[in-house]
């Protein structure tokens, strides 16, 4: 399966799951919504250019926003993590080995610890920016950070469940 086709299918699946399953779950706490959709951006291939990464993230976010009716809210958060993703990856990985031999970030390609850090950081930034943009203020800062933390926790739980359930095989890059 080509990378383009696979990611296109994922695009549709993540949107559908987020909109029709996770967004329908009654909120766990007053404001805690389980978010998983941005895992799509985490799973995009290493080789993708920074600019195309930003544009795809924006389109992905906008697609979700069309369903939720908050045009630009999730897109802004997606563009945000798409922008910082390459920096975090370059910090966590030794470029020669991983990026050249694997196609996309996963537990198998990166190892448990770096992948967990990668996912945690991006999740946290995503939620922080999302909540900030949604509330437009820090308000009670304890409450704000509590909401960001709780949402991040739920999201991380979902991410690792997904990783367990759909154990992506670490694909070596080929010349094909």
């Amino acid at each position: 399966m080509s990378s383009l086709l696979k990611n296109s299918i994922r695009f549709v699946l993540f949107i559908l799951i987020q909109v029709y399953i996770l967004n329908q779950v009654p909120p766990l706490h007053r404001f805690v919504v389980p978010y998983l959709y941005f895992l799509y951006i985490l799973w995009l291939p290493f080789k993708m250019g920074k600019l195309s990464l930003l544009i795809i993230a924006c389109l992905f976010g906008l697609t979700l926003d069309l369903f939720t009716g908050t045009l630009g809210l999730h897109a802004a958060a997606c563009v945000m993590i798409a922008y910082i993703r390459p920096f975090i990856l370059s910090l966590l990985l030794s470029q020669e080995t991983t990026e050249q031999s694997y196609t996309e970030p996963s537990i198998n390609s990166m190892g448990w610890a770096p992948y967990s850090l990668y996912a945690t950081l991006l999740t946290f930034f995503h939620h922080f920016y999302l909540v900030l943009l949604e509330w437009l203020q820090f308000g009670d800062f304890i409450y704000f950070i509590g909401k960001v933390g709780a949402t991040s926790g739920i999201s991380l739980l979902l991410i690792f469940l997904t990783e367990m359930l759909f154990n992506r095989k670490a694909k070596y890059r080929t010349n094909k």
Binding site: L54, I55, L71, G72, A75, A76, L133
Partner: peptide, 23 residues
Amino acid sequence: INLISFLILQLLCIVLLSSTSKT
């Protein structure tokens, strides 16, 4: 180019957000 496009996209998102949400 990356930083500029990032900022442009953020701006776009905020403009869109402002156009849909009164708040």
